[in-house]
Structures are given as structure tokens and as C-alpha cells.
Amino acid sequence: MMDDAVREVARRSVLCWLATVDAEGQPNVSPKEVWAIADDQHVVVAHIASPISARNIAQHPQVCLSFVDVFVQKGFKLVGRAREVRAADPEFFAWAAPLLAIVGQRFAIHSVLVIQVQSVAAIVAPSYRFYPDDTTEASQVASAMRGYNVQAVEKDKP
């Protein structure tokens, strides 16, 4: 379900956004810094400081996770069902492995939010749709770099 294109954009995305809903139907969207695609059907998110997300998932497991490469302005929306795997659970370290590789000793991971992905949809900036003849990934990167006031770093030559 999650092919190489999804994995590549995920690799380039600094944050993902996890949407959950509470018992009263109140939505919550929370940025997540430590997350990974675990396999073709699962995404794992570290519960480092996510008590609301964890509580909401216990009440309503349906979630949406989105991520975007902010320079290319393309990404993906993943919809699925989540569950919390706590540190005391036998399967914790299997799910936590890619997250622990990211954080090392920097953060304590209280639990892992495991999302079984049910659907994947592309996210693209409106320019790609409304101005397809003028919009390329290169033009979007240039525009984003101007907007964020950043410059490309020249790579060291061998």
C-alpha cells in the first residue's frame, strides 16, 4: 500500500500531522517529530509527549496522518486505524525499533502509536492542478526557498 514514492516523501518530511477525535467528537491535530513507515501497511509514531493523541486513539481508533515535503509541496494523506502499544507490551520493541533508531537517547518513548493504513491519497499544492504547464517540482522548490528565505547548501566536491 505504501510504495517507494510514499516512502521517499516520508523520508524528506520533517514532521507529520496526526488527526484524532475525542469522545465528544472534538478533533485534535498534533505534529509528530518522531515517526516512520514500519512496513507496507503500518506507520509508527512515538508517544513522547502525546497524551491527547493516545487518549483519543483509545476512544476512537480512526486516524489520519499527513506529511508534505515543504519544498516540493507534495505529500500524502494516510487514513487508518491506530492502537497504542505500551512499553510493557511484548511487541513494543518490534514496533519501536525504527523510532529508537531516530531518537537514540534524546527522548523517552512512552508508547508507540501503530497505525494500520487503510488508504493513501496524494497531497499536492494547488499550483500543480491550476497551472500544470507552469508548475514543476523545481519551480515549487524555488518558490518555497524564496518564501522561507533559505538557500541551498552546496555539497562538498570530492
Rank of each mutant, 00 (worst) to 15 (best):
D4F: 06
A5C: 04
V6H: 03
V6C: 06
E8A: 12
V9R: 03
V9D: 08
A10E: 06
R12Y: 00
R12D: 06
S13A: 15
W17C: 09
L18Y: 09
L18V: 11
V21F: 04
D22Q: 13
A23L: 14
E24I: 02
G25P: 04
G25H: 07
G25V: 00
P27T: 13
V29W: 04
V29D: 07
S30E: 12
P31E: 05
K32E: 10
V34W: 04
W35M: 10
I37Q: 07
I37G: 02
A38H: 13
A38S: 05
Q41Y: 08
H42T: 09
V44S: 01
V45T: 01
V45D: 02
A46V: 09
A46M: 11
H47D: 13
H47R: 14
I48H: 01
I48P: 03
I48C: 00
I48M: 08
A49K: 13
S50C: 06
S50K: 07
P51W: 01
P51D: 08
A54K: 03
A54Q: 09
A54M: 10
A54L: 13
N56D: 14
N56S: 02
I57T: 06
I57N: 03
A58S: 12
Q59H: 12
H60K: 14
P61G: 14
Q62H: 14
V63E: 02
C64N: 15
L65E: 00
L65V: 06
S66G: 13
F67W: 10
V68E: 13
F71V: 06
Q73R: 15
K74W: 06
F76T: 08
L78H: 11
R81A: 14
A82C: 09
E84R: 13
E84S: 15
E84I: 15
V85C: 07
V85R: 06
V85T: 00
V85I: 14
R86D: 10
R86N: 10
P90L: 10
E91Y: 01
E91F: 02
E91K: 02
F93W: 09
F93M: 05
A94T: 09
A94E: 11
P98H: 10
L99D: 00
L99N: 00
L99R: 00
L100N: 05
L100S: 04
V103K: 14
G104D: 00
R106C: 02
F107W: 10
H110I: 11
V114S: 03
V114R: 10
Q116P: 04
Q116E: 15
V117A: 03
V117C: 01
S119R: 08
S119G: 00
S119D: 00
A121N: 12
A121E: 08
A122R: 15
V124H: 01
P126S: 02
S127R: 10
R129G: 09
F130W: 08
Y131H: 13
P132V: 10
D134A: 13
D134G: 05
D134H: 11
T135I: 07
T136V: 13
T136E: 12
E137V: 10
A138K: 14
S139D: 07
S139Y: 02
Q140N: 08
Q140H: 05
V141D: 09
A142R: 11
S143R: 14
A144E: 04
M145S: 11
Y148K: 14
Y148V: 05
V153A: 08
V153G: 04
E154S: 01
K155D: 13
D156C: 03
P158H: 08
P158N: 08
